[in-house]
Design a protein around this nucleic acid. Sequence first.
DNA 1: GTCTATAGTTCGATAGAC
DNA 2: GTCTATCGAACTATAGAC
Lengths: 226, 226
Amino acid sequence: MLPGTQEQEAAGRNKGSRAAILDAAERAFAELGYGGASIRAIARDAKVNQAMVHYYYQNKDQLFSAVIERRAGEINARRDAALDQLFQNGTPTLETLVEALLRPTIEIGHDDTRGGAAYARLIASFNNAADERSCRVTAENYDPIALRSIDAIRRVLPDLDRAATVRGYLFAISVALSVMAKTGRATRLSDGLLDDFDTEETVASAVAFACAGIRALAKTKVNKSP
Amino acid sequence: MLPGTQEQEAAGRNKGSRAAILDAAERAFAELGYGGASIRAIARDAKVNQAMVHYYYQNKDQLFSAVIERRAGEINARRDAALDQLFQNGTPTLETLVEALLRPTIEIGHDDTRGGAAYARLIASFNNAADERSCRVTAENYDPIALRSIDAIRRVLPDLDRAATVRGYLFAISVALSVMAKTGRATRLSDGLLDDFDTEETVASAVAFACAGIRALAKTKVNKSP
DNA sequence: GTCTATAGTTCGATAGAC
DNA sequence: GTCTATCGAACTATAGAC
């Protein structure tokens, strides 16, 4: 009976260790990449014995998946709730919808009190990665909410065909991810005029940019060449 | 006298080995990340002795830098030439300018005859990375052309203040990078309506999206909150 | 659940012959 | 420039005592 594949242990006695391992792994994967992170260093950082990491998460690959699943669950729950609420009172504007999709993503990345910044760096770097593990994890954790979001955009903008909506959604997400990982580049290139840590400005800019971009795709051919 | 820090050796006899190492390293870093790639495997793939990698590039970090510099030099040369030409005959449209900036990036990623696809995956994944090495390499290789591009956008759209232009440029680049690494996600989410490998469609979509987004930033406050 | 100990690999880097 | 040989360190994962 392996705890990693079962529901949480009854009393929740060692929830601290499990979570501490995930926190440390999140930081390590974000900072060093999958290959650069080591279970030894993660265990040391989490202040648990190295063997405990294998006891809870079996191996490095499953530990990585667990790190992603925890945060993706939270982001997707917030997005789902926002979508449900938005369409209760008729059809929202594109701006309202896109903000509902992007804000949870950006906010988690900017909320360092719960360690979200490390996850932000992590997801921002593996979103565009093409290796097998990154693609698998993205598909498993983010494809369902992506499809639901794409449907929602189509209901708001019926003129957009399905192909253009998918492109628009993927572009919007990549815009949001670019402000999620606070690399300091915006501040550097703007001589301090911009602030990577200003959540409200980054959300407003990303939403404005993405909405205009999505609308523009209606006028462009977005389809396979023959 | 270390060959890695000097100009190419006179006769160019072993240019094959040097380039083969870079090609193999590019593939390895793209596929496995910096930490996951190993010099041993790179040497094997390049069909050279492991010690030769150290002889030419000293260590893993400098090998990584060399991989980026080679491609960045090519992309930036094409972008520079395009910028020079564009402004020779007055002021271009925003669409022309943005296409000149994004097309070299996207095309190199789609041109697999010269191994550009591996570099595409590599740059797409480390662009948003916040670790020290990624930031250093990005700043060294891409900040100069970024500043020049930002100035060019401002000349085309004088209404845009500097902060908004920097945001717009960074968003546009992240849009381009999202279609550079062909992860197959667009095809999957669109049930085959979209094709990650269709260079002309991806360029047209990215340019249309980015131009509309940049223009929209003129109407939004893009500045640090007080 | 927690720990020690260790098997079995693989790694980056260098020394030194040719 | 090219190669062999190797050092020293780090790694994942497991076995087994408590």
